[in-house]
């Protein structure tokens, strides 16, 4: 049971990234590969500042700003230098690897001895329920804030940019600026996942971000399938559904591990699972 609760918490921690990818997909309709780098960036900054005895809450603005910077960079390369968004993301992700390694100083930093955001609150005696409550409250407040922003005039303009570029130009919206801001927000949210996961698993590893974008993508795809299925139009419910997608994703991975799949195969399982999510709705159409 605890095994599945751990997966559930991990799903919650990663759902901030899923919300980020939900935004970048809405703007570009393509996956933002910067994610791999900005996720690790969040974890790296968290490790370094926690080790320097920063308060866990005080680290959050730094993590958000760093993620935003990474996203803006991808956005600027894409819009100003007119480079394919996919390639722009790959470039920034690759560059971030060196930056992350420089900040972290070595490839792995354990965080067992430091006061993390999880060890700073005590709702329950059992740490697993403590962690669950904290991550749930944390993610719900993030979803609330993101939902609010997306419902404002600015948020409507941002969502429209992805839906119809010709319309938004005619309605006085600077599409390029919107893309840069959108990617900044998306990668802030991704970095926040790095912040949470590093503290939850008690270490930061330079390679923890490899392929993480696939996890986020899979979560969003599950979420979008459910959004379509239930015809959800409310933004807040859409975001909650994406969070549900992230949790479901981790539960499926936990299940495959529990039936004895070699952990080395986990990335292969992840990729196959995402492929499955993508093709199932297409198979149905041919009926």
């Amino acid at each position: 049971m605890e095994f599945y609760i751990t997966a559930l918490i991990l799903g919650l921690c990663l759902s901030s990234m899923a919300l980020g990818i939900f935004i970048s997909m809405k703007i570009f309709n393509i996956p933002d590969i910067t994610t791999d780098g900005s996720y690790t960036l969040g974890a790296v900054i968290t490790a370094v500042l926690l080790t320097a005895h920063w308060n866990a809450i005080a680290i959050i603005p730094v993590v958000l700003a760093a993620g935003a910077l990474a996203g803006m960079l991808t956005g600027i390369i894409h819009t100003r230098l007119k480079i394919e968004a996919l390639l722009a993301g790959i470039l920034v992700m690759t560059g971030l690897y060196s930056i992350n390694l420089t900040i972290l100083g070595r490839s792995n930093v354990p965080l067992l001895e430091v006061q993390s955001v999880f060890s700073s609150v005590h709702f329950f005696a059992a740490s697993v329920y403590n962690n669950l409550t904290l991550s749930l409250l944390f993610i719900l407040s993030i979803a609330f804030i993101v939902g609010y922003v997306l419902r404002t005039d600015f948020g409507i303009a941002m969502r429209a940019t992805g839906s119809s570029a010709s319309m938004t130009r005619a309605l006085g919206i600077n599409n390029n600026k919107m893309k840069i801001i959108g990617l900044a927000i998306a990668n802030s949210l991704t970095a926040l996942s790095g912040y949470l996961v590093a503290q939850f698993q008690n270490f930061t590893d330079i390679n923890m971000g490899i392929g993480i974008v696939i996890t986020g993508l899979g979560s969003v795809l599950i979420g979008e399938a459910l959004i379509k299925w239930w015809s959800i139009t409310s933004i807040h419910w859409q975001l909650l559904t994406v969070i549900g997608g992230s949790i479901l994703f981790q539960l499926v991975l936990a299940f495959t591990l529990s039936i004895g799949v070699d952990p080395n195969m986990l990335k292969l399982v992840t990729a196959s699972f995402v492929l499955l999510i993508v093709i199932i709705p297409r198979l149905k159409k041919h009926d």
């Binding site: 409507i156 119809s164 319309m167």
Partner: peptide, 11 residues
């Protein structure tokens, strides 16, 4: 081209 498909009429 003149409207955003994914957004509601109201948006």
């Amino acid at each position: 081209s003149g409207t955003a498909s994914d957004l509601s009429i109201l948006d």
